[in-house]
Each structure stands twice: as C-alpha cells, then as structure tokens.
C-alpha cells in the first residue's frame, strides 16, 4: 500500500490591488478548528494594510465605474461561475470552520445565486431608480445614480461567505470599489473568495480583502478620509457610535446592516445597491 500522500496546505493571505501579499505587519492569528487544531495562520491585517488597500481601491474605482454596466454584469456573473467551480472547496472550508454540511452547501449555493442576482441588476437598477424630472423652466433635467466611490466594509462575522458576498456584490455592481474585512471568527472564505475574484476578470483593486481583528481595524475603516462610505454588519451601540462618530470626519455615508438575515430578501434587493450610490442631477437648456 502506497504511503498516504501529504496534502499541500494553503497559505491564506490578504488581497490588495489584485495581489496577494502577506500583512505588512508580519503578524498573524491562528485559526483553530473545534478540536483546537490549527487550520491556518491568518494574516492579522494592520492599519497600513488597510491604507494600502484604500489606495488600491481609489486607483481602481474610476476605471471600474467607467466600465459599461453590461461588462460589470458579466464580470459579476463570471464571479458566480468561478465560485460554482470551487463549490466543494468552499463547502469544505465552511465545514472546517464549524458549519454542518447541509448549512455549508446552502450557504455556498445561495452565495452563487446571489452573485447572479446582482449581476443581473448591473444594467437595470439605473433604469429603475433614475428619473427625468419635469422642471418648469426650459431645461432638460435628469437624475442618475453614480457610485459613491470607495466603500469600506466590515463583513458580518457569522455569515462568512454569504454575508461577504451580499455586501461586496451590490457595492461593486454599482461601480464602487471596496475594502472589506472578512469574518474574524471564520476568515477562510474571505480569502478564498478573493482568489475567486482574482480569477474572474475583476480588475485589481476593485475588491480588496483583509483579515484581522475587528476591534483593531474598525476605527481606521471609519476614519479614513479617502473612504466615501462605510458598511458595518455587527456590533451593538458602542460599535455603531464609534463608526458613526469617526465617519463624520469626512461626512461618510454610514450603512448599518446589523441583524440581517443574509439568506432572505433583506439581503437580496436593489435597495442595497442604492445604499452606495449618489444621485447626480444634470440640467441643460432646451433651445436652438
């Protein structure tokens, strides 16, 4: 009988600007399974990693926003395709982190479907929400939606794949770029999902994924002056207060998504896209 093959373990790194560096801090935190065995040494992302990620996100944002809605839709669809192809891997990761097989399967399948759902909105939400405004003067006036810009996100801790996907998809389908901090308790899927993104024609920098400690990074996410919006999905009043207070330094848009049932319609509707959009109204005279 042949000797048992030694499996090749994956190094989980963070994802910034389309690359997979280790955290610049050199620090890590061990992720253990329920028996206390170390599954992986996760990057303990730092404020400098976040800073680098924002630079990458800012650089990528305008180009991504200029991509046609059709293209953005296709790329989101491509993410779903790639995720489907790695379905078993994600199920296994979720199980490693404590999910039952059934729950893991459901979470991965729903995540894939959710990507398809938002992919389809790419070239439609504008049609649903924008308007032509019948002003009284001799002007043509219309309001369209534009991405808010760079969105910082603190992904939900409990729904480590579906929650992550449900926040990333509506932000990027509308032309934003984002920096997202994956689940602290179950960080594997965030990194693996970054690999999916990397394989899916998503331009580098459009989505940046960090792992690390929420308590350490929240204030930087909320206070960075070149971030236009912040989404947070966990925490009580104290977290909400910290985030909102710091966000006020540059009048960030603050989007609270706590206590969301990520499996339901609450996490699957176009109003989530609208959360990170700005209304731009244009006037032009009608004359000869």
């Amino acid at each position: 009988m042949a000797a048992k093959r030694i499996a090749v373990a994956k190094t989980y790194k963070i994802y910034i600007g389309g690359k997979f560096p280790r955290t610049e801090s050199g620090r890590y935190f061990p992720l253990e399974d329920k028996d206390g065995k170390v599954i992986a040494n996760m990057c303990r992302g730092s404020r400098k990693d976040f800073r680098n990620a924002v630079v990458a996100a800012r650089k990528a944002q305008s180009g991504w926003a200029k991509a046609s809605a059709y293209l953005r839709g296709q790329i989101l669809y491509r993410i779903a395709e790639m995720l489907e192809g790695r379905r078993e891997q994600f199920i296994a990761e979720l199980q490693q982190q404590g999910s039952s097989k059934r729950a893991a399967e459901k979470e991965v399948d729903t995540s894939i479907d959710r990507l398809i759902y938002f992919a389809g909105w790419a070239d439609k939400f504008q049609q649903v929400f924008s308007s032509v405004n019948p002003v009284s003067s001799s002007h043509f006036n219309f309001s369209v939606f534009e991405p808010t810009g760079v969105v910082a996100m603190l992904a939900p801790d409990d729904s480590s794949l579906l929650g992550l996907v449900s926040n990333i998809a509506p932000a990027i389908v509308g032309g934003n770029s984002c920096v997202i901090l994956g689940s602290e308790r179950k960080p594997l899927c965030a990194v693996s999902f970054a690999e999916v993104l990397h394989a899916s024609d998503v331009p580098g920098g459009v989505v940046n994924v960090l792992t690390g400690f929420r308590s350490e990074l929240t204030e930087y996410f909320a206070s960075h002056m070149d971030v236009n919006a912040i989404v947070y999905c966990d925490g009580g009043k104290a977290v909400a207060r910290t985030v909102q207070e710091l966000a006020a330094d540059n009048i960030k848009r603050v989007i609270e998504r706590t206590r969301v049932d990520w499996t339901g319609t609450e996490a699957e509707n176009p109003y989530l896209i609208r959360d990170t959009q700005e209304v731009k109204t244009t006037w032009h005279p009608i004359g000869t």
Binding site: N133, V135, E278, V279, T281, H284
Partner: peptide, 22 residues
C-alpha cells in the same frame, strides 16, 4: 450632486438637490 450645463443655480421641486463627499 448637481451639474448645471450651460446654465447655473437653477432649482425646481422636481429636481433632486444634494451633495457628494463633504
């Protein structure tokens, strides 16, 4: 949030008004 092309400082109840950033 509001762009006036070949005009400026026009307002109307039907026309949304408000800003980006700060």
């Amino acid at each position: 949030g509001v762009i006036w092309a070949n005009t400026f400082n026009k307002f109307d109840p039907t026309s949304p008004f408000g800003g980006y950033k700060e």
